[in-house]
Design a binder for these strands. Structure first.
Length: 428
RNA sequence: GCAAAGGUGUCCGAGCGGUUUAAGGAGCACGCCUGGAAUGCGUGUUAGGUGAAAGCCUACGCAGGUUCAAAUCCUGUCCUUUGCGCCA
């Protein structure tokens, strides 16, 4: 959600931005909201005048009552009643307009950063960095579900019976590796000065609405029956929601936190869950990072944050590249965003393992997250990024660390979390 | 889950139908004092909207209601604390 003031003072900029995102259908919203806004303000002024009259007349009644001039007071009461009728009509319209304006404002995309490459869709995303050699070994890398099978690490059949499609049991060393990766990601972020948090795994609808659009919510979030609660799709939701409606002392900025949570996603509309694999599932676990900072610092943080993820994957012996999202692929709330992708030597291409975004003040404006300091009170900037999400990261780990004989190298960084094991051997 | 008490500005906290334009304090900012600081004294300081400005409007957890008038009364709801119950 952008500042309506920007639309008042510079509608062309807002329209230009919509065009850059190839959402021309939304262009008319700008003029429409300007119209509604001016009507709304006019009405508000009328309403304010009426409310002012009511307040002063009511006060006068109070004075007269104290002086026991009951008849005079009653005469004024009649005036206020008449006034109130007019006011009620205006207030209804005022509220309608306000709601309509808010709805449109939610639909108008955030202003993207100047540096964002222009492009229609994800095919035009731009590679900005590569780390490690995307090796294709001389032997054929098995499908990750087969690697997992070889170490008796995966049981989707049982999960199908208990929970249905899109769920899984991770077993033995596979489960341990999965948790080791998360733990390593966690400790890496702690070493970078982030505060570790375990947030609520369910949140209320008002928080959900603050962090995503209704359409996104419907496609992603599981709702708890009979209660106003949703299972989180990422801990970003509860971590940013934590600050809803707060005014934060500027001196405590930046707020840097790394959170762990399971993540639940309906994956509605996605082209199917894989039959055997773990690439797209209803439940995964993620170590996340968030930063809340002053507006002028957000771009620096953005660049630092995705580098953390690259560093984590580098330490797990997984080659990665970073792709910047082009304008058309950027979600409406985001100012700039990139995906960190891991190399798949089996598919001979990269696949997404993390996503880093700065939302500018849009999320903070929706949720009412402000800071107070020398320059007064202002909305602060919010950023979020994946440290590591598994089992997707586990897939990358297995494919990049499996040997021709089927054994799996445990990267040095993970060994402390694996009881010192250096290699995992297949048991069949 | 039951019961009681409570939710007021950045924080603490008073107010419990009209004299609240939300007392008082802490914190913060500025000034005086000082060689410099602490202390002390003085001034300012809730947020949002609207307006050129003066001002006006809105908000006392949230949503409704009663009233000429609601922080204050009523209803619902959420949260917190305490006690009881239940439970890893």
């Amino acid at each position: 959600m952008i500042d309506i003031n920007l639309i008042r003072t510079n509608p062309e900029l807002v329209k230009e931005n919509i065009k850059k995102k190839f959402q021309d259908a939304k262009l008319e919203l700008v003029d429409k909201v300007i119209m509604l806004d001016s009507e709304h303000r006019k009405l508000k002024q009328e309403g304010d005048a009426l409310r002012a009259a009511r307040n002063s007349l009511s006060q006068e009644i109070g004075k007269l009552m104290r002086e026991k001039k009951v008849e005079e007071a009653n005469a004024i009461k009649a005036q206020v009643v008449a006034n109130n009728e007019k006011m009620a009509a205006i207030e209804v319209r005022e509220e309608e307009l306000g709601a309509e304006i808010k709805q449109i404002m939610m639909a108008i995309p955030n202003i993207i950063d100047k540096s964002v490459p222009i492009g229609k869709d994800d095919s035009q995303n731009v590679e900005i960095q590569k780390y490690g050699e995307p090796k294709v070994p001389s032997f054929e890398i098995p499908y990750h579900a087969d690697i997992l099978d070889s170490i008796s690490g995966l049981d989707k059949e049982s999960a199908g019976r208990t929970s249905g499609e899109g769920f899984y049991y991770l077993l033995g060393n596979a489960a341990r590796l999965h948790e080791a990766m998360i733990a390593y990601g966690r400790d890496y972020m702690i070493s970078q000065g982030f505060i570790y948090a375990i947030p609520p795994f369910m949140i209320r609808s008002d928080v959900v609405n603050g962090v995503m659009s209704f359409a996104e919510m419907d496609a992603m979030m599981y709702k708890i029956e009979g209660q106003d609660l949703f299972l989180i799709g990422t801990s970003e939701h509860s971590m940013i929601g934590k600050f809803k409606g707060q005014i934060i002392d500027e001196k405590t900025l930046p707020i840097k936190m790394t959170s762990y949570s399971p993540c639940f996603r309906k994956e509605g509309g996605a082209h199917g869950l894989e039959e055997r694999g773990l690439y797209r599932v209803h439940q995964f676990e993620k170590q996340e990072m968030i930063v809340l900072c002053k507006p002028e610092e957000s771009m620096d943080w953005y660049n630092k944050m995705w580098q953390y993820t690259v560093e984590v994957f580098k330490n797990l012996d997984i080659p990665v590249r970073t792709l910047e999202c082009c304008s058309g692929d950027l979600a409406d709330l985001k100012v700039k965003s990139c995906d960190v992708e891991a190399w798949s030597p089996r598919q001979k291409k990269y696949f997404e393992v993390g996503s880093c975004s700065t939302l500018g003040d849009a999320q903070a404006r929706r949720l009412g997250i402000r800071a107070k300091g020398e320059k007064g009170t202002y909305y602060l900037h919010t950023l979020n990024n994946t440290v590591l999400a598994s089992p997707r990261a586990l897939i990358a780990l297995l494919e990049n660390n499996v040997n021709e004989d089927g054994s799996i190298n445990v990267p040095v960084a993970l060994r402390p979390y694996m009881g010192g094991i250096e290699k995992i051997y297949p048991n069949k």
